[in-house]
Design a protein around this nucleic acid. Structure first.
Lengths: 364, 364
DNA sequence: GATTCACTCTACATCGTTGTAACCAATGGC
DNA sequence: GCCATTGGTTACAACGATGTAGAGTGAATC
């Protein structure tokens, strides 16, 4: 079978524990002993059995990242960044796709796989305020987004309302009066859809524009396809639109497709702005203006907070981190000429909030 | 601490092994005993310790998927599909990003993390024929792509040459004479770049077109950005082009961007075709024709083959599976009118090849 | 010269399961 | 009425590492 520490110990003429000490970099070992052990390791081709170590140390050095779907560019890029950030801390990332299914989201928090890893970075889609109890867990947890407000866990979120408002105001400032929104979720109270839609309404108000329900396009899943369909439905219904705020970039790409299919030019006939600032929108035709919610910082912060929880006491205060976000102007809003590079139209500061907890870990 | 089988056993008044048997669905247990155990499990909130089981059973029910980068749409979609397929077999997927680094690719095959999982699905980018020895491993392995021909491992690959040839011939059949290729790798012998470029050359020959080195655009990494830069460089150098074959879709999107920036219309001035058939190209403006290498089948087959290896004897014959690929015509080649749905232009059959092995597992 | 201390290393128990062998009923065949 | 079989359960020993406590050294301290 596989070579074990025992085999190495025998060959090097030391105890198993000494081999373990060498492997783990324990400092007080005679150079000669270390040499013998290392030689034995090399000649036998010994490899540490991670599973055994995991059992003994009660740690796996793995963390879970739970996202709706990797095929959505935003989450693919997020996963990429989280994996890189985790790597720097010698952590391995296990990805769970919840696919926007409530059951699978619950499973992420309670299921069998949960205890494979030391902690969880969770971007929920279906679970919401009503499920706040589910988030009161006894393992390190960082929540992405703000579907759940009072959960006793770290949050890394984004300036949803303010950024959406800024995007809308910006479209209005460019002279647009019929600004549609694509991706709304009827009846939702928290969650990105609701918050961004709220920002949209605030933006209209700030610009002195009336709110017209006909300009609100519903789209459950935020895919390219739903963005295209929603936009198409709206146009085909004869709704007059001179600007579109898509609640994410995938839908913005879909909307662009639908506009183009109806011979509407972006930005000449209709201005378009997305949200997420994924790589796609920098190469589409035209390039699409978008809100960068601070994606790079989100991934890094999430990993940092999780690592802190894993290492530290479980009764520390919770944090709520909001990265700085930026409104990036590109061709789709006429903010830059064709072929010109993007420019930052607005910057919205983030911040860190610390939520004290009592001895039981409840928020004060 | 955590509740263990021991606690459950005490509470239910049975032995630890009986609890284990109940948990694992061993059939010969008295209903009454089972009930007692299950009740104890529920009241104590017992959860099986996966790490301990992994140690004892020498299996983790996890597999590794190693890809260059998740931020490339093709690999994000692949990961999505692999995760889903694995899920159906109750396997968890751990993703490694090699980032196109040779060192990291070697690490995937030999590194510390390797033994965390029961097997590996590996899409190499840098390792190639010269490294064939590295692939002679003692764990279940499925290689994606065809950088390494004689590796003693299952391969799931694609009709690179034939499909690229078909794409090129198709462009020629549409009347194009100056067909550029974007993404070539100078000096490479195997690997997608070399194979697809070879298909391109064959296609030119078949169409009776001359091969012009000026029409070959090099691009190391196959990103949107490199596609855009490569295309831009070629155009800015004054090379006349009336069609472009981008070796993957990300570069096709980048090329489209570069063409547009230079006021060249697709498909009126330049026709464009990509490779991979990722979701992006169905929503770009215009929609981009592409080669679907059979992505869905690739993911599923890879998981199936790996599962087979994990379960079966290690000396079974190796397989080489090539899914059926399709040339999908869209707006960028004028194969369909604006706004019209895609259509299958050609279909290239795949197949399964079984490579016998001798007793030592070497290929015959 | 006794005491302390820092090094270096070891013995042993332990992490929480599952595989193996074996035991004690109860059943069935002859 | 005895033996073989099956069902239901258990005791015990792994799986391969690490934490704890402590035993020897030798050098430094008083």
């Amino acid at each position: 079978m596989a070579v074990t520490m025992h085999d190495v110990a025998v060959r090097a003429g030391v105890s198993i524990k000494t081999v373990s000490n060498v492997v783990n970099g324990y400092p007080h070992i005679r150079p000669e002993t270390r040499r013998r052990v290392e030689e034995a390791i090399d000649t036998l081709g010994y490899r540490l059995n991670t599973t055994a170590r995991n059992l003994r140390t009660r740690r796996t050095d793995m963390i879970t990242l739970a996202v709706p779907e990797l095929s959505l560019p935003y989450f693919a890029e997020l996963a990429d960044r989280v994996i890189r950030a985790a790597e720097e801390q010698s952590l391995t990332v296990l990805i769970e796709q919840t696919g926007g299914s409530r059951e699978r989201e619950v499973d992420v928090l309670t299921g069998k796989r949960r205890q494979l890893t030391d902690g969880l970075i969770f971007s929920p889609l279906e679970l919401s305020q009503a499920d706040v109890g589910l988030f009161d867990v006894d393992f390190p947890l960082v929540i992405l987004g703000e579907r759940v407000f009072d959960a006793p866990a770290d949050h890394v979120t984004m300036n949803n309302v303010a950024a959406a408002r800024a995007a809308t105001v910006h479209l209005a400032a460019l002279g647009h009066r019929r600004i549609a929104v694509v991706g709304a979720h009827e009846g939702e109270e928290l969650g990105s859809a609701a918050l961004r839609t709220e920002g949209y309404k605030q933006g209209l108000a700030e610009a002195g524009l009336p709110f017209d329900p006909a300009l609100v396009g519903e789209a459950g899943l935020w895919h390219r396809s739903t963005g295209s369909e929603t936009m198409g439905r709206m146009l085909d219904a004869g709704v007059h639109v001179d600007a579109v705020f898509a609640l994410n970039d995938a839908m913005a790409l879909g909307a662009l497709h639908a506009l183009h299919a109806r011979d509407l030019d972006v930005p000449r006939d209709v201005a378009l702005i997305g949200f997420d600032d994924v790589d796609d929108v920098r190469y589409s035709v035209p390039t699409i203006s978008s809100v960068d919610p601070g994606s790079a910082q989100i991934a890094r912060t999430a990993v940092d907070l999780l690592v802190e929880q894993i290492a530290g006491p479980s009764d520390r205060a919770y944090r709520r981190v909001v990265p700085t976000s930026r409104l990036v102007g590109r061709e789709s809003t006429g903010d830059v000429a064709e072929g010109a590079p993007e420019r930052i139209v607005a910057e919205l500061d983030g911040g860190v909030e610390t939520i004290a907890t009592d001895a039981l870990g409840r928020t004060a």
